[in-house]
Computed example of a mutant assay.
Amino acid sequence: MSEKKHRVSRRQFLTYTLTGVGGFMAAGMLAPMVRMALDPALEAGADSDFVSIGLSEDELSEEPQRVDFTVELDDGWYQSEQTQSAWVFRNGDEVMALSPICTHLGCTVNWGTNEDNPEEFFCPCHFGRFERDGTNIPGTPPTRPLDVYEVEVRDGMIYLGQINQRD
């Protein structure tokens, strides 16, 4: 059998070279864009960060107490601290932490400030009321319960995670 020598012409060589270099440059330009698009999806499945609220499990009672705590936020290159609040109490054997933000219009709810209903959360903006466990009372403006924090107890100290919306 005879083997033909396969010679590459100058035109084919330049075509192959320019295609390779162009592909390499396109991949270099597209890689950061693909990474930026996929980054939120990769982080969404990550565990949420829990923050200590400086309160031990022994300091809790069945009476809700308001606790202010600081969360560090990373926004691109900017890092800041934000103060948040929660109503923390013991609900049977579990520790419960409720958001103090009314689900009606975003006012701040307080525990036991309504003279007619002292054992409820009360929103003074539109007279919204919530049960002790955060469920909204029918016939009042809020249409859903107070949001609840993820709670974790480590070494007797209470840590709060992200806020979850309840229906």
Rank of each mutant, 00 (worst) to 15 (best):
G128W: 06
N136Q: 12
G134Y: 07
V21P: 03
D49S: 05
F50D: 03
S80F: 07
L30D: 07
S2T: 15
Q162R: 13
N91K: 08
S56K: 04
R166E: 10
W111P: 03
L38P: 06
A31P: 10
E94G: 02
G128S: 08
Q79K: 14
A41G: 10
M1T: 13
A26E: 04
F122D: 12
V21N: 09
R35H: 12
W77S: 11
F24Q: 05
A46Q: 07
F50M: 01
R90K: 15
S80T: 15
M157L: 13
D133C: 05
G161Y: 02
E57Q: 12
S9P: 11
E150T: 11
A86L: 05
L55E: 04
T70A: 05
F24H: 00
T140H: 15
D75L: 09
E94N: 08
T108Q: 09
R154A: 04
N136V: 04
V67K: 00
I158S: 01
G161F: 00
V71M: 02
V95G: 06
D93I: 04
E57A: 10
N114Y: 08
G134K: 08
Q12P: 03
V151F: 02
H104L: 06
V95E: 02
S99G: 06
N164F: 09
N91Y: 15
D49Q: 12
A97V: 01
S61P: 03
M36F: 09
R90D: 01
G54F: 04
S99I: 08
R132I: 12
L42D: 02
G23H: 02
P32A: 01
N114M: 02
S2V: 14
E59A: 15
G92M: 08
D49E: 12
I53S: 01
G156R: 07
S85D: 00
R11A: 06
I101S: 00
E94P: 00
A31N: 09
D155Y: 05
L38T: 14
G28H: 09
E62F: 10
N110C: 04
R35I: 08
F13C: 06
T113K: 11
V88L: 00
T108F: 09
L55D: 00
Q12K: 11
D167E: 11
T15L: 15
V71L: 03
A26K: 07
I53E: 04
I158G: 03
D39R: 10
H6V: 14
G23I: 09
C123P: 14
